[in-house]
Design a binder for these strands. Structure first.
Length: 244
DNA sequence: CCTATTTGACCTGT
DNA sequence: ACAGGTCAAATAGG
């Protein structure tokens, strides 16, 4: 899967509000393109025309995806590596950790025992506002893969209503390797819904949600959608089965 | 200023 | 005592 080198122009100087609007608009374009793709392709007779249409539509969708990534990188991207060696370096220039449809703020970072790279702790930006308990940790995997791989652990379900949440916009089909995948459900504590731990790489999260697989009618959290899709998919469901 | 990140200190469970 | 998760003061950057 490509890792994009993003050149973010700081001269455009969009305000926060502009970012939100722009992202919304692009997501709208993405969604419409996706719908067009779903309507158009089956109605075309198989052949080079259908192939061409598919290519063009996929390119449009991919451009939307990149544009959103760029906007988001430009929006909060300013990480310089300090001491402490190789931290994750999520934003500008180089490797970009993929978006998962939510906005997070980082509140900590820890060096983990045997691990080469630190683990960073993030919570939903609506933690205060809507006291949304969702949390995730991100950790680069030890063995350096070329497109670097991260393990993302999602800890609590979102309870927030984020208006401009966007679904992951990744189109590439699934050659990327499964790093590690694990899930379990905890018994609920003090009235919270059962808590789901999902351990998967960013790569997998995105792959699981290709437009074809995304169910238009569900407005579930992307992570939950992953489960829906995974349950129906022979490969992923067998992986999940072993872990349940 | 304001907001987000960094980073050592602090907390908690094993 | 230790590992790992969180807090919060200092810092960075717009």
């Amino acid at each position: 899967m490509e890792h994009t080198n993003l050149l973010v122009s700081t001269s455009t100087d969009l305000s926060h509000w502009d970012h939100h609007l722009a992202i919304k608009e692009i997501n709208e374009a993405h969604e419409l393109t996706r719908q067009l793709r779903a309507v158009l392709l089956p109605s075309l007779p198989a052949g080079s025309l259908a192939e061409l249409a598919r290519e063009i539509l996929d390119k449009i969708i991919k451009s939307c995806s990149l544009a959103v990534l760029m906007l988001q990188s430009g929006g909060h991207g300013h990480q310089t590596s300090k001491q402490h060696g190789e931290g994750e370096r999520p934003m500008l220039d180089g490797h970009v950790t993929r978006e998962d449809g939510h906005q997070w703020t980082k509140y900590g970072q820890k060096r983990i025992n045997g691990a080469k790279y630190p683990r960073s702790y993030h919570r939903c930006i609506y933690h205060k506002d809507q006291d949304c308990p969702a949390t995730k940790t991100v950790q680069k995997v030890d063995r350096d893969a070329d497109p670097p791989e991260f393990i993302v652990v999602y800890n609590m379900q979102h309870r927030c209503r984020s208006s401009d949440r966007h679904i992951p916009l990744v189109l590439e089909s699934a050659e990327a390797s499964l790093v590690k995948n694990q899930s379990r459900t905890d018994t609920p504590s003090d009235g919270d819904p059962p808590m789901t731990h999902l351990l998967l790489s960013d790569e997998i999260l995105n792959i699981s949600l290709t437009p074809e697989q995304w169910n238009l009618d569900n407005d579930l959290d992307p992570v939950m959608s992953f489960f829906e899709f995974a349950d129906a998919d022979p490969f992923y469901s067998s992986v999940l089965m072993n872990l349940r």
